[in-house]
C-alpha cells in the first residue's frame, strides 16, 4: 500500500501510539496517507476508535510478526 509518511510506534504502550499518530498527521495535507506501526495489541481497537472519532479514514490494517501496521488517510478538516 502506498503512503506519504511513516511513523514507527513499535514497542510503545498506550497512549503513545495514538499520540504519535496524531502528531504525525498534524503537519500532513488532507488526503495524504500515514503509515504507522505498533506492537501494542490494544492499538488495534484504539486506532479504530481514534479514526471513528476524528474522521480520519483507516484504509487498512495488517498484522505480521506481532507488528500491527495501520494506513490512515488524513481527513480534510483537521
Amino acid at each position: 500500500m502506498e503512503f506519504d509518511k511513516e511513523v514507527d510506534a513499535r514497542n510503545l504502550n498506550c497512549p503513545l501510539p495514538i499520540l504519535r499518530c496524531k502528531k504525525g498527521l498534524s503537519d500532513m495535507a488532507a488526503d495524504k496517507t500515514l503509515k504507522i506501526m505498533a506492537t501494542d495489541p490494544g492499538s488495534v481497537k484504539d486506532f479504530d476508535a481514534f479514526c471513528k472519532q476524528t474522521g480520519h479514514q483507516l484504509l487498512q490494517m495488517d498484522e505480521a510478526d506481532s507488528v500491527f501496521t495501520f494506513y490512515i488517510k488524513k481527513q480534510i478538516s483537521d
Binding site: C14, P15, I18, L19, C21, K22, F50, Q53, T54, D78
Partner: peptide, 11 residues
C-alpha cells in the same frame, strides 16, 4: 495525564 493527552488527540 493519559486521559487528557488522549482526549486532546481526539480533538
Amino acid at each position: 495525564f493519559i486521559l487528557a493527552s488522549t482526549a486532546a488527540a481526539l480533538d
